[in-house]
Amino acid sequence: MAAKVANPPIRIMSYEYNGQTVYFESAPCCDNFSTLYDAKGVVLCQPDGGITGRGDGNCADFEKKRTNEQLVWQDPRQK
């Protein structure tokens, strides 16, 4: 909560992906990468964002294969 308020607000979503629960942290804005973590907090990839909007390419199928979307947390502060 000490970080600057992002627009749009940062969200953490959980999904099922490739047989495991993963956590997606949205990007704060424009050309920044989002981050996908496994259940232990290890970074798996950056599924979207960057100049191309396609992330780092290491989980290009994430959007198509993810299921069971659930909101875990969203920054409650408004900008």
Rank of each mutant, 00 (worst) to 15 (best):
M1S: 12
A3D: 09
A3T: 05
V5Q: 11
A6T: 12
A6N: 09
P8K: 03
P8Q: 05
P9L: 01
R11Q: 15
R11L: 03
I12F: 09
I12W: 08
M13G: 00
M13D: 12
M13H: 12
S14F: 02
S14Y: 05
Y15L: 00
Y15A: 03
E16K: 13
Y17S: 01
Y17Q: 01
Y17D: 01
Y17K: 02
N18H: 15
N18K: 15
N18Q: 14
G19K: 09
G19V: 06
Q20T: 09
T21P: 02
T21V: 13
V22N: 02
V22G: 02
Y23D: 06
F24P: 02
F24C: 05
E25A: 13
E25I: 13
E25P: 00
S26P: 11
S26V: 10
S26D: 12
S26K: 12
S26H: 13
C29L: 11
C30L: 11
D31N: 09
D31A: 12
N32P: 00
N32R: 13
F33P: 07
F33Y: 15
F33T: 02
T35H: 04
T35V: 14
T35S: 13
L36S: 09
L36W: 07
L36F: 09
Y37L: 04
D38Q: 11
D38N: 15
D38R: 10
A39K: 15
A39M: 07
A39S: 15
K40R: 13
G41K: 09
V42H: 02
V42A: 12
V42I: 04
V43W: 09
V43M: 14
L44I: 15
L44F: 01
C45V: 11
C45Y: 04
Q46I: 00
Q46N: 14
P47R: 05
D48Q: 10
D48H: 04
D48N: 14
D48P: 00
G49K: 05
G50M: 05
G50Y: 05
I51K: 14
I51E: 15
I51R: 11
T52Q: 08
T52V: 01
T52Y: 04
G53C: 06
R54M: 13
R54N: 13
R54V: 03
G55P: 02
G55F: 00
D56P: 04
D56R: 07
D56E: 06
G57L: 06
G57C: 10
N58I: 00
N58W: 03
C59T: 08
C59N: 08
C59P: 03
A60S: 15
A60T: 07
A60L: 00
D61H: 08
D61Q: 07
F62H: 12
F62V: 07
E63P: 00
E63Q: 14
K65G: 07
R66V: 05
R66F: 02
T67E: 14
T67Y: 01
T67G: 11
T67F: 00
T67S: 15
N68P: 01
N68D: 15
N68S: 14
E69T: 11
E69L: 11
L71A: 07
L71W: 08
V72G: 07
W73L: 12
W73Y: 15
Q74M: 14
D75K: 03
D75M: 07
D75W: 03
R77V: 10
R77Q: 10
R77T: 06
Q78H: 09
Q78A: 11
Q78P: 03
